[in-house]
Design a protein around this nucleic acid. Structure first.
Lengths: 229, 229
DNA sequence: TCAAAAGTGTTCGCTATACACCCATGG
DNA sequence: CCATGGGTGTATAGCGAACACTTTTGA
C-alpha cells in the first residue's frame, strides 16, 4: 500500500475537516478530537483526514463524520478550501472544510469515546492548525445560513418545544428575542405541526410539542416563498 | 524544472478557476477563454490553472485574474472546492473556484485579446469540465451576496447613475424594481454621495451621478448596521 | 410635437416590535 | 403560596409595494 506516487509537478496534500455542531438545549457545541501525535499533539482538532482518491470532498467529510459520531447521514455544507502555505508544518496541505449539524442526542460517543468531546463554542480549548480560523468561518456561515434556511431543525430532536427552538436561535445568532413575537413569527410561517394535536391543553406550563414540516417547506419554496429570519 | 515529485500517498492536482463577472450597462457578463488543447479543446473555460506550491488559493486566483484582465486587484470571493472524481479526464484534479467582480471598462483585452471574450450570462457557449456547474453556483452566490453586501458597486465605474445601478441589480437578481421605490431605498441608506453636487439640475432627463461611499458603509457596519436588499 | 427618460411624493397594508395578562405547577 | 415558566392578545411605528405627475430632450 505504501508505494510511491510520482508526479511531474508538485501536488499538495488534500484533507477534509468537519466542524460538527450540536445543541444541548442551552449552548451551541462543537465536537473535537484530541490529537495524539505531532504536530499539535495534545491540541484539539475537528474530525478530518486525508481525502481518498476515489471520493469527493463531501464523501470524505461524511466518512469522517461517521467515524466520530456513528451517523450515516447529516446536514453538511462546504465552507471552502483553506490553503495557507504554512498551515501544516509537515508539507503543503490544503483542507476542504465542512460544517455539519447533528442532533446531539443521536451521537454515539462524544462522552464515552475517549478521544472525542463536545465543547461549548464559547469555551473552546487550544485548537490545532488553523482550526480556530475555520471555526470562526463556520460560526459566521451558520449565522448567515439560518437567516434564510430552516437548518436549525437539524440540531434539534424531531419533536421539540417552542422555548427550545428559541434557545437554539438565540444561541446561534447570539441575540435575545421576545418570547411572544418569536413564537408568533414561527407559527404564522405555517411550517410547524403540533406533534400531539389531541393533547389536552388545560392550563399550561407544559410546553407544546412541535415538529418541522419539511414537505410543506419544500412546497412553499417551490412557489417562490423565501424564508427570512 | 520538470523533476519528479514523489509522495508516499497519492495526491490530487489542485487548480484555481475564476468566474469573472462584468456588467456592460445592460447585461451581466462573464469572461471566458477558449481552450486550445485537449481535453475540451475548442470549449470555453474560466481563466484558471494549477496552483503553485508557494501561493494560497486566493493568490492563485488573483494571478489568473491578472493574466487575463491586467487587473492587479479586484473583489474576489471563494466559491469553494469542486472535487468530483472524474471532473478532469486526465487525472484527479480538484479546483478551488472563485468569483471576481470587475469594472468591465477597466479590463484590457476581452475584445482585442484573441483568446478571452465576454459572454452574456444568458447566452453562454459550451463550457469545459464542470464549468457550467461552477457557473450556476457562482450566479447563485452572487445573488445571495448582493442581498447583504454592497458588492454591486464593484461592477460599476466609480461614478454611476441611478438607472445604471438599478439595471445592475435587476440583471443580478433577475427581477424588476419600481424606479421610484428603488431610488428612494438606495438614497435613504445614505451610502450614495452625489458625484457633482454643484451641478445645476434644471429640469431633468440627464441622470444624477452618484458615488458609493465605502467609508460610510464601513462605519455604519461597525455600529451594527446590516444592509438588506 | 410627441414619446421616452428621469426626478419626486403619497397612500396603504403588512410586519416587526414593544408590551401585559392569565394559568398551572413545583418548591 | 408565590415565583417561575409557558401560552395568548393588542397597539404602534416603520417599511415595502403600488401608483401619478412633471419636466426635458431627442427624434
Amino acid at each position: 500500500m505504501e508505494g510511491n506516487f510520482v508526479y511531474k509537478y508538485p501536488h499538495p496534500a488534500v484533507t477534509t475537516d468537519c466542524v460538527i455542531f450540536g445543541f444541548d438545549g442551552q449552548q451551541l457545541k462543537v465536537l473535537l478530537v484530541e490529537r495524539g501525535i505531532e504536530p499539535y499533539k495534545g491540541h484539539w482538532a475537528f474530525p478530518g483526514g486525508f481525502l481518498k482518491m476515489d471520493e469527493t470532498a463531501d464523501e470524505g467529510a461524511l466518512r469522517e463524520l461517521k467515524e466520530e459520531t456513528g451517523l450515516e447521514t447529516a446536514y453538511i455544507e462546504q465552507l471552502g478550501a483553506f490553503s495557507d502555505v504554512k498551515r501544516d508544518p509537515r508539507e503543503r496541505v490544503i483542507t476542504i472544510a465542512f460544517y455539519a449539524l447533528v442532533n446531539i442526542t443521536e451521537v454515539k460517543g462524544g462522552d464515552d469515546a475517549a478521544d472525542a468531546r463536545w465543547f461549548r463554542i464559547d469555551d473552546m480549548p487550544l485548537l490545532a492548525f488553523d482550526h480556530d480560523h475555520i471555526l470562526r468561518v463556520a460560526q459566521k456561515r451558520l449565522k448567515e445560513q439560518i437567516h434564510f434556511n430552516p437548518i436549525g431543525f437539524e440540531l434539534l430532536p424531531e419533536v421539540f418545544t417552542m422555548p427550545q427552538l428559541q434557545a437554539l436561535y438565540e444561541a446561534i445568532l447570539e441575540v435575545k428575542f421576545d418570547r411572544r413575537n418569536f413564537s408568533r413569527k414561527l407559527l404564522t410561517l405555517g411550517l410547524l405541526d403540533m406533534a400531539d394535536p389531541d393533547q389536552e391543553r388545560n392550563g399550561t406550563r407544559t410546553p407544546v410539542l412541535y415538529r418541522f414540516n419539511a414537505d410543506k417547506y419544500q412546497e412553499m419554496k417551490q412557489r417562490g416563498f423565501r424564508l427570512e429570519f
